[in-house]
Amino acid sequence: MTKRLVIKDIEKCVGCSLCMYACSRKFTKKAEIGVDSSGILAVSLSGFERGATVIFCRACFDPPCVQVCPTNALKPRKGGGVIFVEDSCIACGNCIEACTIGAIFRRRDGKPAVCIHCGYCVNYCPHDVLAFQEVEV
């Protein structure tokens, strides 16, 4: 058993982006103000009249992003998703292209920002869209 970030009810998303700011802040030693290293993105659905949604890594078991990484900077995570070894990354952007749902984001330095399923953002989702749950592996 392992825990992952999951969607509880996507229809409840109000597009506040608090998850994005939480993601950038999550490691106290590297805490950032902003959204550059956020591994989650809140968007409107072509305008807020159609509501909002969040996009993040859905923790594939056979992740295409790992397959296209030339330097092993992305490794499969036990329980799905990836582990990102930043120092090995050469910012080629292959992983960003490879993700079918566009859940890997390019930081300003060119390297990827991807959800590591730590669950920190759930504490800042005020409307119960996100949850951090044990999932069957």
Partner: peptide
Amino acid sequence: GKRSYSPKDKKSYKKIYDKIY
């Protein structure tokens, strides 16, 4: 916009953030 920056005091930043939230 896609910039980030570091607060001067990261630990107390997170603390006061949580308080306001």
